[in-house]
Design a binder for these strands. Structure first.
Length: 467
RNA sequence: GCCCCCAUAGUCUAGCGGCCUAGGACGCCACCCUUUCAAGGUGGAGAUCGCGGGUUCGAAUCCCGCUGGGGGUACCA
């Protein structure tokens, strides 16, 4: 089978986390079956679609590395073809003109709802003589939906889902201004694009019945549908802006890596035995749509952060350095010279296993490049009591005399210093760290001193002892 | 209101009639490592498998009802 999938967002807002997962599943499914993965912008609602939203979607997909195999398709560019299909339906009686006014429709709906009905349009113009048509009203075109029988969607995720045709009313295909509605456009475009598998959010599940009916009426075979569950907020309710209904760009700003986000999203609703962190090539190998769960999942930032920390640890130092260079310059307020870059590069290595998100990496590594004298935080200040300062002054002299500067030689010097003064390591290591980093948290202090260099280390010590 | 979907620890999930005294992961706790904080390692607490009925020798797994959650109900997508 020649698999074709599509991600079909409407450009009325940003690309959110649910959309990203839908794109991912479509992408994986296509890759798994060696098929094509396409992008279609559903912009049939011209009033609500914006260029900003289109850009946000494209940028988000680019960042996530989920760009389509072919140029994006804009639904609004196919209106001619979509309308032509309606003319055919009109010609063979499978669609008809409806002259109801919006007000009429409204009261009709209220009446139907009050009567406990689902079919909200009563079919007023379904069989009415067209010569009754009022002259001053532009009609909409409605689909003449089957009344008897039932429509079945053999959903790849939800299983067999059936609805009685008596529940579905005659949907609008063409608006009064002649523009196609979403229901029409999806059907025509999915067919024309050769879509074999439509993987989309659960919110479309009930739409699938109408679309299947339309496919049959036109004489086309519908694609296989797969309705994946929606993502909920941490409290189990609908995702809101407070939660995580954020644009993908926000996740980027929060310091998540795209591959980590993808990895997290993959395991949200899909699983492969007890596998947790799954490399992309394995994901392609293992992914199949019927392994997707049917219940909605909540977004969990703790787990996302954990996954992210794992990916940060895997990243090589150069890539990480590239990632933090600009933000760190912004943070410290001056641009990094060659020496600072070198320090950062060696410093990153052991810091990366201590952080979960990129901003943390920046915070934990920035002391390497900050200008002297360092600002000491409260805890560091507390560690640097008179005793400590006195010892650091002595240590500075000792270190001054070191002819070779390496982690090993520094360690030896300090351990000798500890023995000579009959103190324990903590008594000098902690103040040493405070003086060198301005904080009480950092990688091993021998490493820090080594990366800083002899000159800078001693200078930072003297900054403290001279106060 | 009506239609449709879902339901295993706080969270993500494994499980597809006996292998389950329900497994893994995040989070939480403890210990080890240790100059701090992480990472890493080891161990632990945490689930009457939403509830109630069936079917069966046997059910988390199949069926029905209930409850709870979600989605849809537009000349939005």
């Amino acid at each position: 089978m020649n698999v074709v999938t599509r991600f079909a967002p409407s450009p009325t807002g940003f690309l959110h986390i649910g959309g990203a997962r839908t794109a991912l599943f479509n992408w994986l499914f296509a890759k798994h079956y060696d098929g094509r993965y396409l992008l279609r912008i559903e912009d049939t609602d011209r009033k609500r679609s914006t260029q900003e939203a289109i850009d946000a979607i494209i940028n988000g997909l680019e960042w996530l590395n989920l760009m389509p195999d072919e140029q994006p398709i804009y639904q609004s560019e196919n209106t001619e073809r979509q309308s032509q299909i309606v003319s055919e339906l009109l010609a063979n009686g499978k669609a008809y003109k409806c002259y109801c006014s919006p007000d009429e429709l409204l009261t009709m709906r209220e009446k139907a709802r009050a009567a406990g009905k689902t079919r909200l349009y009563d079919g007023t113009w379904r069989d009415r003589d067209p010569t009754d048509a009022p002259k001053d009203i532009q009609p909409v075109i409605r689909f003449r939906a089957p009344i008897k029988g039932e429509t079945v969607n053999q959903d790849l995720v939800q299983g067999s889902v059936t609805v009685s045709n008596s529940q579905l009313d005659d949907m609008v295909l063409l608006r009064a201004d002649g523009s196609p509605t979403y229901m029409l456009s999806v059907v025509v475009d999915d067919h024309d694009m050769g879509v074999t598998h439509a993987i989309r959010g659960d919110d479309h599940l009930t739409n699938s019945f109408r679309q299947i009916q339309l496919f049959h009426a036109i004489g086309w075979a519908p694609p296989q549908y797969a309705h994946i569950p929606l993502i909920h907020g941490p409290d189990g309710t609908k995702l809101s802006k407070r939660h995580g209904a954020l644009g993908i760009d926000s996740y980027r700003e929060m310091g998540f890596l795209p591959e980590a986000l993808l990895s997290y999203l993959l395991r949200l609703g899909w699983s492969h035995g007890n596998e947790e962190i799954i490399p992309l090539d394995k994901a392609i190998d293992w992914f199949d749509i019927n392994d997707v769960g049917r219940g909605a999942a909540r977004i969990d930032f703790d787990k996302l952060s954990y996954i992210n920390s794992q990916y940060i640890q895997e990243k090589d130092d150069e890539t990480l350095l590239e990632l933090i260079k600009d933000p760190i310059e912004q943070k410290i307020g001056f641009s990094l010279d060659k020496k600072s870059m070198k320090r950062l590069k060696s410093g990153i290595h052991s810091v990366k296993s201590r952080v979960k998100i990129i901003p943390e990496l920046i915070d934990n590594v920035k002391f390497y490049v900050q200008k002297r004298p360092l600002t000491l935080n409260k805890k560091a200040l507390k560690v640097l009591n008179n005793d400590a300062r006195h010892r650091l002054a002595q240590l500075a002299d000792t270190l001054q005399e070191l002819s070779s500067w390496s982690e090993a030689s520094i360690e030896k010097a300090i351990k000798d210093f500890v023995n000579k003064n009959e103190i324990n390591l903590k008594q000098i290591a902690l103040p040493f760290r405070a003086a060198l980093t301005g904080t009480t948290v950092s990688p091993g202090i021998f490493e820090v001193a080594n990366v800083l260099g002899q000159q800078e280390t001693i200078a930072r010590l003297k900054d403290i002892t001279h106060i």
